[in-house]
Design a protein around this nucleic acid. Structure first.
Lengths: 233, 233
DNA sequence: AAGTGGTCTAGACCACATA
DNA sequence: ATGTGGTCTAGACCACTTT
């Protein structure tokens, strides 16, 4: 019996997927080790490694040294969301993008904000509120705090024509951050800005980014009702 | 001048990150090719490749054959969300998980559902509604349609003690799917079930999974107010 | 102690996009 | 036509974990 030959890591991956899917390798079960698979598939071990590593990264396999590789018992679906600049998001839908600065002021933030950003309670931060539009209709309202200790150039930018959303990506790199998605009932002032009924359910994205130990910016985006964040699995 | 030596792909990646971050390589700029970097770093080209490929996957670099590698002008933040089985999600928070089946019936779905699932309008699907609890309090309500043409075993499962959420992962593999997150105002019946005021803003996850060309299941999960989906960047 | 995945190397060829 | 990233190979050594 001559083993079929798998020339590249994608075909190896496809074959592995087929076996998992066909229940030849059942959830929780140990699969052969890389060396054996390489021999069976007629390729180098590193090719098998590439295929299996990629499947492990997407959550379908559990791999541990010495313990071997198992089919994930309950594959954790990894949904990768692309969080783009809002202008690109709007333009990507074929709509005309618009932007309006609402307020911009240097002020001492509420405890909630300087707590999250770990800035001294007495330090003023730059507070920017703005509206993003799609085809002249409100799309999302942005409420942002910027740590001017970390991004001093923000002091000289008026954000009249470019959104902080976009400006920061260009001038304020970050090393890591946190993001949270939730549903909130929109407060009255935000409802006015978005042109929706107070208490409407709106989608919220909260983001906090850091440059090493220092917080760069904290932002909440509220989207008009009907907004959906989508991705494929 | 002796180049420092980078022994492994992570240290190469760190150095690349440092240069991007320090603006030695600016957004949009072309960086040296793999062979040159390998020489500079004193390692094999494949090690450089591993480091750069990984950064490209996370959106920080744009790579194209012949055109070379550039620092992403506007790095699209890729947020990877882990969508686990609800029981694990609850237990992972240190809460006690509970489950209640609400209804289970074989019925012809509304047009909206069979349209999305691309099943014949006359075909009955299995409709399951259930409540997930955390520490005996409502956590999320699940409204699910199962294509029994694709998962006939579902016909014999009563879902009294195991949620469809969990059961399907074990017995109904899927090849791909779509997922969407949104904010909705909860309807009266769901509000009753969740024990919240009607019209409350709740977080919704809609998922539709496929086995090749055939839809497997379509589900909407509504979470109690306060729910957040979080991840790091 | 031993078996597994993780990684590195040097070299090679290929695929693709640009010029 | 050419330069770039993408991949494969065979072999080697290492790191981690379980036995």
């Amino acid at each position: 019996m001559n083993a079929p030959s798998f020339r590249n890591w994608k075909s190896v991956q496809d074959e592995v997927l087929r076996r998992i899917h066909a229940r030849e390798w059942k959830p929780g079960e140990l699969i052969p080790n890389e060396a054996d698979l390489a021999e069976e598939f007629g390729c180098a071990r590193s090719t098998v490694n590439r295929a299996l590593r990629s499947l492990a990264e997407s959550g379908l396999l559990d791999r541990r040294r010495k313990a071997g590789t198992r089919v994930a018992a309950q594959p954790v679906a990894k949904a990768t969301l692309d969080i783009a600049v809002i202008r690109h998001e709007v333009e990507g839908r074929g709509s005309k993008y618009g932007y309006q600065l609402l307020t911009r002021e240097l002020t001492v933030p509420p405890a909630r904000v300087c707590g999250a950003m770990q800035t001294p309670a007495s330090d003023a931060l730059l507070h920017v509120r703005a509206l993003h539009l799609a085809d002249d209709a409100p799309y999302a309202v942005e409420d942002r705090w910027i740590n001017i200790g970390v991004v001093p150039q923000a002091h000289d930018e008026d954000f009249a024509t470019i959104s902080a959303n976009e400006w920061l990506l260009k001038y304020a790199p970050y090393t890591h951050g946190e993001i949270a998605f939730s549903a909130v009932q929109v407060a009255e002032d935000d409802a006015d800005i978005l042109g929706v009924a107070p208490q409407s359910a709106v989608f919220a994205i909260d983001r906090l980014t850091w440059d090493k130990d220092a917080s760069v910016t904290k932002v909440r985006l509220l989207f008009t009702p009907g907004y959906q964040l989508r991705t494929s699995l």
